[in-house]
Computed example of a mutant assay.
Amino acid sequence: MKSARGESLGEVSVESGGLAGDRAWACVDDADQTIGSAKHPRRWGGLLEVTAAGVPATIEVGGSRYAAGSPEADKALGEHLGRPVRLTRTVPAQPRIHRLLPDDPGMVPDWLAELRPGQERLEESGGYARTGRFVDFGAVHLVTTGALAELAERVGRPVAADRFRPNLVITADADPEPGAELRIGDVVLRVLFRTPRCVVPGLGQTGLPADPAVLRTLARHYRVRVFGDGKAACFGVYADVLQPGHLKLGTPVTPA
């Protein structure tokens, strides 16, 4: 479920739209039909305390587990978030999310330069049209152990990969370059571009306290040009699936 805590898997099928089951569900606000995203923590930060797992999908709220799509799940989520919501696998007619820009100016992408740090924004959510999932853009999001180690050195302490909510953590010295093709077993991925970051990596979430230093470090050291539209603070990369297949933990990653 979008913005919920996921699960660690030893193996998983990879489909053309991404990992099987990944972000197949989203929470929708009954009042304005916007898609729930922790990019606006005052409205949706509570989703980071919800766990989603399994196929068929279940969610865990406040220590109780419910079947995704059931009235009981919607009721529990609504009570947790403090307003009526529903879980859905179907994108609303106007797929929109609320975003709160980080307070650090370096975290505001150049293509949003007309907005001030800390400003709220209602924007289209285009990932569903590309992948059939409630993702921001790419079918797969990955980070590398080398990039995490470099970030930890700059922050001054370890930074959990979970803060970036990746699908895959790859053992490598650095993130692959845009355009690179990676083979992982029988799965082939093509790297699209570096992942622009929002407020989420600095937020407190299940098992992780809030850490504004992560965002400050991204703003100062990780601002790079993204697909010709200016610079943004980026970490990790988005990729599309060229060849579906099956992944197992520990499978070597090689150039395709």
Rank of each mutant, 00 (worst) to 15 (best):
T145Y: 00
V253M: 04
L208I: 11
T131W: 09
C234P: 02
V214F: 03
D211Y: 00
A172E: 07
V155M: 12
T251K: 01
D240P: 00
A180F: 08
H246A: 04
L148T: 12
G179I: 13
R220N: 10
L189V: 06
L215T: 03
P158Q: 13
T144R: 04
R157S: 15
T171I: 10
A152Q: 14
V188Y: 03
L208V: 05
E177D: 11
G132Q: 15
D173Q: 08
L182M: 10
R216D: 11
R163E: 10
C234S: 14
G250V: 05
R225T: 15
D229Q: 13
V200D: 06
R223T: 05
D173I: 04
T145C: 01
F227E: 15
P166C: 04
I170M: 10
E153L: 11
Y222G: 05
L249N: 00
H246Q: 08
P166W: 06
V226R: 06
V159K: 13
H141L: 13
D211W: 00
V155K: 13
T144P: 15
A219S: 07
F227D: 13
A174K: 12
T171H: 11
D240H: 07
A239N: 05
G230K: 02
A152F: 08
V140N: 09
E150I: 02
E181N: 01
A139E: 09
F134N: 09
Q205H: 06
N167Y: 11
A149C: 01
P176Y: 14
P209C: 02
I170R: 02
L168S: 06
R163D: 12
L215V: 07
G185S: 04
V155R: 10
K231R: 15
G138H: 11
D240W: 01
R220K: 12
L189C: 11
G250Y: 04
D186A: 10
A161T: 08
K248S: 15
T131F: 05
D175L: 14
L182G: 11
G250S: 14
E177T: 15
L242N: 02
A180V: 08
P201I: 08
A232L: 03
R223W: 03
G228N: 08
R190E: 14
G138W: 09
A210V: 00
R133T: 07
P212M: 02
Y222A: 06
L215A: 08
G207E: 07
P244I: 02
E153D: 15
T217R: 04
L203M: 10
E181H: 10
L182R: 06
V155S: 14
R190W: 02
R216E: 14
R157W: 08
L203Q: 12
